[in-house]
Structure formats: structure tokens, C-alpha cells
């Protein structure tokens, strides 16, 4: 019997990077994640198990999952044999900035692990899952589906993703929002290194269409901490623009700017009832999965 700690180590992006196919990665993540939620990876997790939802007064206290409570400080109850027909779309940013990596996986690789894990989890919950990639336009789109083999198509699409052009989310977000025909869930995985007004406007458009939105902002540790020491020419991978700076001199101001940006996303998205989760590419993926489950249970 595997210990939870041992299972959770497969949620580490660095470990995942050494695994084989994206499907294997996704399965490893999800099952590791789920095994962490239960005492036994298979106990209570059967075809009857459907999903988790947040505790509502009146629910049977025995169905409360205390592991999740320990992790999230919220009460979740396991729902069994509950059929769902949620339509979930994964929107993955493939702009040039997503190719950045410092030590572990790149932001794009991390996004693909996350998207694959979510897709795997969604399929396990019988949710329809679709995929769209974008930079300043919609690069590819796979409509949501539940057919057998759809997951493979999603994972294959994720596996083929390559970082592309500059980021400009407004146009693809509006396009994708207009293409929605049914309420569902949109999961945006992006570094959101764009003008925040455009980003927020685009996301609001999804909300306007009645769709729940979860935003995973994926940033590298370098972007979050700016740990550089030597003076250097910092080059934007999308525009090629260079800026010479002495890190020690600009670190404080940079971090302030970043914090301002992150706070603005969090604040403005919360106002718009959009879940926002900041992810560090060195972090395990369970934070993202929990965030997803939280939103899933909250909305449906």
C-alpha cells in the first residue's frame, strides 16, 4: 500500500517531466491526487463515485472528506453515482512567453500537465472536455466531448502544443466566448502577461455568457522572485524587445509591479465571480486540481 506522501510526489512537475506520455502523466497526477484524498486509492472510488461537492448544512457528516478539509479548510462531501453533464473547456495559452523555463518544466509544459490532468479528471467524472489553444488568436480548438477516445484526442492535442506568437488574449477570448452554445466551465491556463484590462474584459465575456471560469495563472519561479544577480539584457521572447537592467537595482520595483498585477487579477476576477489561482511551475499540481474541484462542486 502506497503512502500518501509517496503518491503525492508524483504531483511534482519535475517528477512528471520524467514520465512518458502525457496520458501517463495525467493518470499519475490524478490518481496520485485522488489517492491523497482517500485512505486507499481505490476505496470508495468506483464507478459509483462521481464527484465532490462542498458541504451544505444537512448533509450526512459521514460523507465529509476530512482530507480535503485538512488541505483546504473547507468541507467537501463525496457524491456517489451522481450523473453529470458538465461541458468543460480548457483554454491553454501557447504564446511565446509560455515557453519560458528556469529549472523545471516550462510554463507551457506545466500547462499541458495541468490541462491533461484536468481532462483526465473530467473524464473520470463523465464531464465533456474540450480544448482550445491561443496566443493572439485561437490556434486550435477541440469541442467538448465524452466519447471514448476523446480524452486521447485531447491529450494528443496537448502533447502537440508548441509555443507560438505574442500574447493578446482579448481577441481569442471574445471569439471563444461567442462560440459557446451551452453553459459550462471554462478553465484558462495562461501566464496572463498581457494588458490586464484586456484579460479581465475577455474573461468577463465568458461570465457574461453564463459560463463559470477558473483562471490558472502559470508563472515561473524566476518571474515570481526575480532571482537574477548580474546585470543583463532582458529580452522579451515575444517582441524581442531588450532592456538592460541591474537585477539588484530593479528587483524591488519589479516585484512590486508584479504584486500589483497579481492583486489586480485576484481582486477584479473575484468581483466577476471568476476563480483565480496562481501557480508556480515548481509547485505540485494538486493545488490546481483542488481549485478545479472546488469550483466544480460549487457550481454544479
Amino acid at each position: 500500500m502506497s503512502t500518501p506522501t509517496r503518491e503525492l510526489r508524483y504531483l511534482d512537475p519535475a517528477v512528471l517531466a520524467r514520465l512518458g506520455t502525457l496520458e501517463l502523466k495525467a493518470r499519475t497526477v490524478v490518481e496520485g491526487f485522488l489517492s491523497g484524498l482517500h485512505r486507499s486509492p481505490f476505496k470508495g472510488f468506483s464507478v459509483e463515485f462521481a464527484e465532490y461537492r462542498q458541504y451544505i448544512p444537512g448533509d450526512d457528516l459521514s460523507t465529509i472528506d476530512w482530507k480535503i478539509y485538512a488541505r483546504s479548510d473547507r468541507y467537501y462531501v463525496k457524491k456517489f453515482e451522481e450523473e453529470t453533464n458538465l461541458e468543460c473547456r480548457l483554454l491553454v495559452d501557447v504564446s511565446g512567453s509560455m515557453a519560458y523555463r528556469s529549472r523545471g518544466p516550462s510554463k507551457l509544459e506545466y500547462a499541458s500537465y495541468l490541462a491533461a490532468s484536468l481532462a483526465y479528471l473530467m473524464q473520470r467524472q463523465r464531464d465533456a472536455v474540450g480544448l482550445a489553444t491561443f496566443d493572439h488568436r485561437v490556434v486550435s480548438m477541440l469541442p467538448p466531448g465524452v466519447r471514448p477516445g476523446h480524452l486521447t484526442a485531447v491529450l494528443s492535442a496537448l502533447d502537440r502544443m508548441e509555443a507560438g506568437d505574442r500574447t493578446a488574449v482579448a481577441r481569442p477570448f471574445h471569439q471563444l466566448a461567442e462560440s459557446l452554445t451551452k453553459r459550462g466551465l471554462v478553465i484558462v491556463i495562461s501566464d496572463l502577461l498581457d494588458e490586464p484590462e484586456h484579460v479581465i474584459e475577455g474573461l468577463k465575456h465568458f461570465r457574461f455568457r453564463g459560463t463559470d471560469v477558473i483562471v490558472f495563472q502559470v508563472l515561473d519561479r524566476d518571474e515570481l522572485q526575480f532571482p537574477f544577480e548580474s546585470p543583463a539584457r532582458f529580452a522579451d521572447p515575444e517582441t524581442g524587445e531588450e532592456m538592460t537592467a541591474t537585477p539588484s537595482l530593479v528587483r524591488r520595483q519589479y516585484l512590486d509591479e508584479l504584486q500589483t498585477l497579481l492583486q489586480r487579477y485576484e481582486r477584479d476576477l473575484r468581483v466577476s465571480s471568476i476563480d483565480y489561482c496562481l501557480l508556480d511551475t515548481s509547485q505540485p499540481l494538486d493545488h490546481a486540481l483542488l481549485a478545479y474541484l472546488r469550483t466544480r462542486s460549487k457550481r454544479h
Binding site: 512567453s97 519560458y100 543583463a232 532592456m243 519589479y254
Partner: peptide, 12 residues
């Protein structure tokens, strides 16, 4: 030294 860094816009 040339460093590729996506968040140049914040640096500027």
C-alpha cells in the same frame, strides 16, 4: 549577458 525573460514589460 542576454536573458530571455517574459515579464520585461513589468521591468520597464
Amino acid at each position: 549577458l542576454r536573458v530571455v525573460f517574459p515579464a520585461v514589460r513589468l521591468l520597464k
